[in-house]
């Protein structure tokens, strides 16, 4: 296994580039929560494992590693994705936001406050994913995106049914669903999603 070491990320990659080589490893510049991390990664490394094992952000959780639970949800350029099915090399160039990057300095976002106040979790393992997903989902709704329960031909109105459908990619075995839905609706009602 040859390891292609490039002098420094900044020189090798420029602003948004990817090291193009035939190697099985890459040097990438990962933007996480506004900080640039220069990493040499095995191309097999998922964004999830890179965040957890390389960047040290363990707030993002692994529930299934196959896109089937949503625990690993993060935002890539503001859109929610499952980080377990995204390769770290493929995340290069995107602005990745994890649960650690949501609140400002010690301040909880409204969505985080509502989760605490309304008990939107029990064990907390799905919580980072639920919160990142909710932030992404509210932005999608703000852009007018429909969901599977939006009547065709009409514009969506965020009610409990819409929230449940849109949040269905985040499983919660503790069964905190009703409080999560309430927390999301309360946040939406406060009208300040990202604080």
């Amino acid at each position: 296994m040859a390891f292609h070491r490039l002098s420094t990320c900044a020189v090798a990659l420029g602003e948004k580039g990817v090291a193009l080589n035939e190697d099985t490893h890459s040097e990438i510049l990962l933007h996480v929560n506004g900080v640039k991390h220069c990493l040499s990664v095995d191309n097999r490394t998922t964004l999830l494992d890179a965040l957890r094992e390389r960047v040290g952000h363990t707030g993002t959780k692994k529930g299934c590693d196959h896109g089937q639970c949503g625990a690993c949800t993060v935002l890539c350029d503001g859109r929610r994705v499952v980080s377990c099915l995204m390769l770290a090399v493929a995340a290069e160039g995107a602005e990745v936001t994890t649960v650690e990057g949501l609140g400002g300095d010690g301040e909880l976002l409204p969505i985080q406050q509502e989760f605490v106040r309304l008990d939107g979790f029990q064990c907390g393992y799905c919580t980072s994913g639920q919160i990142c997903s909710a932030v992404g989902m509210l932005a999608e709704y703000a852009e007018g995106w429909p969901s599977a329960v939006t009547a065709p031909g009409s514009e969506p109105v965020l009610d409990a049914v819409e929230v449940r459908e849109r949040m269905s990619g985040n499983l919660c075995r503790c069964g905190a669903y009703p409080s999560i839905v309430r927390a999301v609706l309360e946040t939406a009602a406060r009208g300040e999603v990202t604080g």
Partner: peptide, 21 residues
């Protein structure tokens, strides 16, 4: 009352077994 560990759980600071450095 909300859970004492609530803020840790909503910010990703709460550590689980696989998170321990």
């Amino acid at each position: 009352r909300p859970r004492v560990e609530g803020p840790a759980k909503v910010t990703g600071r709460a550590r689980y077994a696989a998170d321990v450095p």
